[in-house]
């Protein structure tokens, strides 16, 4: 009982927990701040692991299963760390019409990963987005945090090979 009621401690000494704490403080440590807090955790750590979910749930007095339910309901949150690079292929209607499926095919052929997966070496994660809102530039891809428009399978391959040569 007392363990539950006393103030939860961050899982590690990591400074980034201060950011998370700040968000929770701003939201008055209320359960309604769960999603905002998870956004902060995801931004700070790149993903939500069990200890993070537990800490946030305890701090905001949200049942564990509800925190887990929320974290898995929204596609923006991930429970696993992403690769060093991320490649987000937009699958919005405009991009679909203009050849996004072919981009995915190319990715799958070259890297042998499906959307949502990371290459075994942890270098590249392939993600899909429902719509980046860059429909005028269809098909669009986000390389790390940079949006690229009118992407062809060839230009996609060029970009991927850059990642593979430089850093892996």
């Amino acid at each position: 009982m007392s363990a539950y009621v006393s103030k939860p401690q961050p899982p590690t000494q990591d400074k980034r927990w201060k950011l998370v704490d700040a968000t929770m403080r701003r939201l008055g440590h209320q359960s309604r701040g769960l999603i905002e807090t998870l956004h902060t955790v995801q931004e700070a750590f790149g993903y939500l692991d069990e200890s993070a979910l537990r800490y946030v749930a305890m701090s905001l007095r949200v049942p564990l299963s509800r925190a887990y339910g929320v974290a898995t309901f929204y596609h923006f949150f991930t429970l696993k760390p992403a690769g060093k690079h991320t490649c987000v292929v937009c699958l919005g209607t405009a991009c679909y019409i203009k050849g996004a499926p072919q981009l995915l095919d190319a990715m799958q052929k070259d890297l042998d990963i499906k959307p949502g997966e990371t290459t075994p070496d942890g270098n590249v994660s392939l993600l899909t987005a429902r719509c980046l809102g860059s429909c005028g530039l269809a098909p669009a891809v986000v390389y790390d945090n940079e949006v690229a428009g009118k992407v062809s399978p060839q230009s996609l391959r060029e970009h991927l090979s850059k990642w593979n040569h430089h850093e892996s």
Partner: peptide, 27 residues
Amino acid sequence: HVWDVMGRGIDAKVVTDLNEAWGNSET
């Protein structure tokens, strides 16, 4: 509030706590 629903759509599923084994549930 041990139980809740995780995921969504056809993949939704009821879970205990943080989707751990029910036998290990603290709550």
